[in-house]
Design a protein around this nucleic acid. Structure first.
Lengths: 213, 213
DNA sequence: GGCATAATGTGAACACCAGTCACATCAGGT
DNA sequence: ACCTGATGTGACTGGTGTTCACATTATGCC
C-alpha cells in the first residue's frame, strides 16, 4: 500500500513519525480541565466541543467517547465550579480564628457569606456555570458542597448560642438566599458594570446575621 | 424575460401570486414576539434567528435589518421579560387591599416578594432571560421596573411606620437579594426538579420583613 | 505467549447556525 | 417622475453538535 497523502490511514503513520500515541491516556480529565479554562475566560456560551478537542489535540468525535453530549460536559464543569466555590468558602472560614467561640462562630458565618459573594464577583463565569440551569443533572453529590459548609457554620452558631435553635431548620436557606441573591444581582446584566457593590454587600450580610438572631 | 424557475427574481413573482407583500410591515415587533414565545418554551439557548425568520415568514438575513446581532435580540427579550415581571408584581400588589395602612403596606410588600418568586417558578425561562448576563446592555430603562415597584413598597412601609426610616437606603437591596436569591436557587439545576419549595419561600419572605423592622 | 473483545480515537458527512454581501423591491420626499 | 433610503432576498463563508463506519490499542482470558 503506497504512502498516498489521500490515504485514509495517513494520520496513523504520521502519528508514528511524531511519537504521538494514538490513545491520549487521560482524555476525559484533559477535556474537563480545558473546559474549565474556557468557561473561566468566556463563560458557558463560549464552550465548544470542537475547540476543546483542538486544544487537547484530538479529533472532535473523540470527545463523544467520554461525554454523551455537550450538555453532559457542561454539567461536569458546573459541578467542578460548585466544588471550587465550596473550597473557597472553607478557606475563608478557616481564616477566622479566636477563642471566643460565640463571636468566632458569627465572624466565620459572615466570612463565608462574604467569600461567597466575592467568588461571584471575581469569577462570574464560574459562578454562572455553578448554578446554570441544565437539562442533565449531576450524577454524584458535590464534594465539598457549599450547602454543607453553610449548614455546619449555622450549627456552630447555634452551639455557641449566637442563633436560637428554633431557627435551625430555616436558617440555612435564608442565609443562602441572601448571599446568592446579592451575588447574582451584582454579576447580572442589570448591575452597572464596573460599579462597586461593597456597601450593598455589607448591608445584606449584616441583615442576615440580624435576621437569624 | 422568461418565467424561468432558476431566475433570481422568481421569488418576487411568486410573492405577487401569493399576494404576500415584499415588505412585512412590522417585522421587528413580530420577531421580538416570536422570540418571546421561543424563549418561554425553550430558554435563551433555544433561540435561533433563522428559526425566528422561518416562523415569521421572512428570509434569515432580513432579521439583520432590525438587530445588529442575535445578542441584541436577546437583550430585547431580556428587557421584555423584566417588564413582564414588574407588571406581575404590580398586579400582586394591587390585589392586597385594606384600611389599616401599616398592615396593608407590609402585606403588599410580602405579596410582591411572593409574586417575584412565583414568577420565577412559573416561568423559569423568562426569569432566566430577564437577568441573563449579556454582552450588550439595555438602551432604554425598563417600564415598569421591578426595582421601582420594590422601592415604592418599602417607602410605603416607612410612611406607615412599619419600617424605620433609617433602613431606607439599604432595605431595597436586602429585600431584593432575598427574593432574587431564593428564586434563582429554586429554578437552578441544584434544586431537585419537581420538589416544592413553599416552606423555604415562606421562611425567606418572613425573614425579610423581620430583618427590616 | 496468543487472541478475542472492549475501549478509545479517526475522518467524513449531515444538519444547523450566525453573519456578510451584492442585489431586489418598495415607500416617501423633492 | 425620479431619486434615495429602508427593507427584504438568496448565495456564501466559516463555525457548530452529532453520528457513522472504520482504525488502533489496551485488557483480560486461554
Amino acid at each position: 500500500m503506497p504512502n498516498d497523502v489521500n490515504d485514509v490511514n495517513m494520520y496513523g503513520r504520521l502519528v508514528d513519525m511524531l511519537d504521538k500515541p494514538y490513545h491520549h491516556g487521560s482524555l476525559e480529565e484533559a477535556l474537563v480541565g480545558a473546559a474549565m479554562n474556557v468557561v473561566e475566560d468566556m463563560g458557558i456560551a463560549g464552550l465548544s466541543l470542537r475547540d476543546l478537542a483542538r486544544t487537547v489535540g484530538v479529533s472532535p468525535s473523540a470527545t463523544y467517547r467520554h461525554f454523551p453530549s455537550r450538555e453532559h460536559l457542561v454539567m461536569r464543569v458546573s459541578q467542578r465550579s460548585r466544588e471550587a466555590l465550596a473550597r473557597t468558602l472553607l478557606v475563608a472560614r478557616d481564616g477566622i480564628v479566636g477563642n471566643n467561640t460565640k463571636r468566632r462562630s458569627v465572624e466565620r458565618f459572615e466570612a463565608i457569606g462574604r467569600a461567597y459573594v466575592q467568588f461571584a464577583v471575581d469569577q462570574p463565569t464560574l459562578f454562572e456555570a455553578a448554578f446554570a440551569r441544565c437539562e442533565v443533572g449531576p450524577t454524584t453529590p458535590d464534594d465539598p458542597s457549599a450547602w454543607s459548609v453553610l449548614v455546619d457554620s449555622i450549627e456552630q452558631m447555634i452551639s455557641a448560642g449566637a442563633v436560637p435553635p428554633s431557627r435551625r431548620k430555616e436558617a440555612p436557606m435564608i442565609a443562602w438566599s441572601g448571599v446568592h441573591g446579592i451575588s447574582t444581582i451584582v454579576t447580572s446584566s442589570i448591575w452597572p458594570a464596573g460599579v462597586s457593590a461593597d456597601e450593598e454587600i455589607n448591608a445584606v450580610i449584616a441583615s442576615l446575621t440580624r435576621s437569624l438572631r
